[in-house]
Nucleic acid binder design. Structure first.
Lengths: 188, 188
DNA sequence: CATAAACATTGATCTAGATCAAAATCGATC
DNA sequence: GATCGATTTTGATCTAGATCAATGTTTATG
């Protein structure tokens, strides 16, 4: 499990073997059941995750009670409720397991501590932030230029695994449409 | 003009006086006329701006030819077409002066060079990225949870200067609605 | 200053996707 | 494996905001 994590870390910054060992030792294994909540709205996001198997999603609940999925992490991906993790202020987002999940978690404290201990960790974090920014940049473009159908078809092309692994309910909220609309799009 | 820039820089990271001098010397003054294009779609974003007076916006053009304003910088704010600036790949965004504008610009080369020369510059850049991420995070929340009217009213409350300084055309595209819709909301 | 071009307003109509409602299917638990 | 709750599908209707169109109003340019 930690070997795969090392590979992922190396794609994001230039660590030597000793540094990688030091880093992955700070990632603690965790098993969570489907539908369990790892972070509840109002609490501070204090962990950063690497997903070994299964998956997590972050979502928030709108004024009129609808769940809005912001981000999905599947096998071999990393992430967390980033806004609260950055600011260490209460999160408006939940983090939830969308499946039985095996993951590795590093605490916020250890994460920031690595900034001082390992020079490349700053580059790693910078890289995470740049990617998170670009991801959202694209999401905004999609929201303001594409129809529901186009958003669905683009995901089908670029990330079909999402459509296999997510429930319609979650997938619809990720694509910013109602379940009924997604159901109709699928049956075309 | 450079003194105000120093103040802004200091709110974002911890620089000493010597470092500030070194930094602001890399920012070159520029005067641009209203409606002039500082960055054209397809070109690489090679400058980062501090706006002294006037304002810039970034926008892109959708498949069906509509302008979509992503980001607006007014007096004493900083920014650029960030995605292309980060990746140094061709931009899908334009940068345009929304008014006659006096600004200071630092080149991408100098900007990244400062990463090696001034330790706190990494923190500065990290801070910029965190803010850019959070800004977009919020924008997505607004797009998926608020009505056109609510988005307009929120901006009226939080940033009325935008409503004074932007043309209806630009403001409407910033709020993701048509000019006609904005016009109707304003006259209520 | 005149004239064209860009921008803003107002009204009428249209439509993508939401909402409401009910039936059908799936899946966890005893 | 029967049962209850959650999820998905299907149909009917509604609506926020887009689109289309015409007119009024600023603003740039020779």
């Amino acid at each position: 499990m930690t070997n795969k994590l090392k590979t992922v870390l190396q794609t994001l910054a230039d660590f030597d073997e000793r540094e990688l060992d030091q880093i992955v030792n700070l990632f603690k294994p965790k098993s969570v059941k489907k539908n369990s909540i790892l972070l509840h709205e109002g609490n501070i996001s204090r962990e950063f995750y690497y997903i070994h198997t299964g998956g997590l999603r972050t979502f928030f609940i709108s004024k009129n009670g609808q769940e809005k999925t912001r981000y999905v992490m599947l096998d071999n991906h990393i992430g967390t409720a980033l806004k609260s993790f950055i600011s260490q202020k209460p999160s408006i987002e939940f983090v939830e397991a969308i499946d039985d999940t095996e993951l590795l978690a590093i605490s916020h404290q250890d994460f920031y501590h690595l900034n001082e201990e390992i020079h490349s960790w700053k580059n790693f974090y910078q890289n995470i932030l740049e990617r998170a920014y670009s991801f959202q940049n694209r999401k905004i473009e999609e929201l303001v230029t594409l129809t529901a159908k186009q958003r669905y078809e683009q995901l089908l092309q670029e990330n079909p695994v999402f459509i296999q692994k997510l429930s319609n309910k979650v997938l619809a909220s990720y694509l910013d449409m109602r379940e009924e609309t997604l159901s109709r799009l699928k049956s075309q």
